[in-house]
Design a protein around this nucleic acid. Structure first.
Lengths: 134, 134
DNA sequence: GCAATTGATGTAATAACATTACGTCAATTT
DNA sequence: AAATTGACGTAATGTTATTACATCAATTGC
């Protein structure tokens, strides 16, 4: 797929996510971007939709929030395979993980049901190494 | 763990989910139970919380809704391992899947990060066999 | 060039999902 | 009988997401 130039709003939202410590909700992004002229949720949601489409960000379903992709290809938006997220409930840090074996198992499971997969969500909630050590 | 007697509200909510075609949102449940005296969201959410705790229902994170567990043990609430859900975007049908290989991969992934897993969400969105055939 | 289409934007209003706060009541414990 | 606990009821509010409608700039087709 060809290079994708981002619009101003899309760049602002992506920037906010890339510079954030962890995942942000749409409304948190909105607040961060008020100084840049954002006034309404839709401005954020529209940008998020496009960024998701381009594969530059991910949505974390279990916490209604968004993170910048850990290994974005800014020139060609691509399909990473299935991504699993480890989400620390203490510090909020999110780790992206990829695993061929995992994809294989999911593929088999779906195949058993003759199910046609469109999108797969894998989110592991728990405690990261730092927050486990006491 | 010992047998768990459900309260009236919990039974009503569980019943609604068990008799539903597919997943229900909390507010849909509320509407279904208005005739039984439900007036406020909290009545539903409190029951849902307990039913989740007892392992009698599941929450589908990607659609903010709830389903009755496919193989409940009404006498001893138990820990099924990881459950993967295949969710049909056409008909709404949800299939529960379990797989030891998948759990193993997840366990390895988490282990690699020294991550302590509390809860794992796996949701596959797509099209079921019926809805794929045209 | 100019009309038509397309895609991004702005704004307001509303819908959908979830929680906090506060008070009551019944059962159990001490 | 007092204290604790857990379920319940109600209201208000907080949070997340979408619908509806209008404007504007860029592109396309004639």
């Amino acid at each position: 797929m060809a290079i994708q130039k981002l619009t101003k709003n899309q760049s602002l939202v992506l920037d906010a996510l890339e510079h954030a410590e962890g995942p942000l909700s749409a409304y948190t992004i909105l607040d961060k971007l008020r100084d840049h002229g954002f006034r309404a949720p839709l401005q954020v949601y529209r940008a998020l939709d496009k960024l998701l489409e381009f594969g530059l960000i991910h949505r974390l379903e279990s916490m209604n929030s968004f993170v910048a992709c850990a290994h974005p290809d800014h020139h060609h938006h691509h399909d990473h395979g299935v991504t699993a997220f480890a989400i620390c409930e203490d510090c909020g840090q999110v780790t992206e993980m990829h695993d061929a074996g995992m994809e294989e198992r999911l593929s088999v499971l779906a195949g058993n049901q003759h199910f046609k997969t469109e999108k797969t969500t894998i989110e592991i909630r728990g405690h990261c190494q730092n927050c486990t050590a006491e």
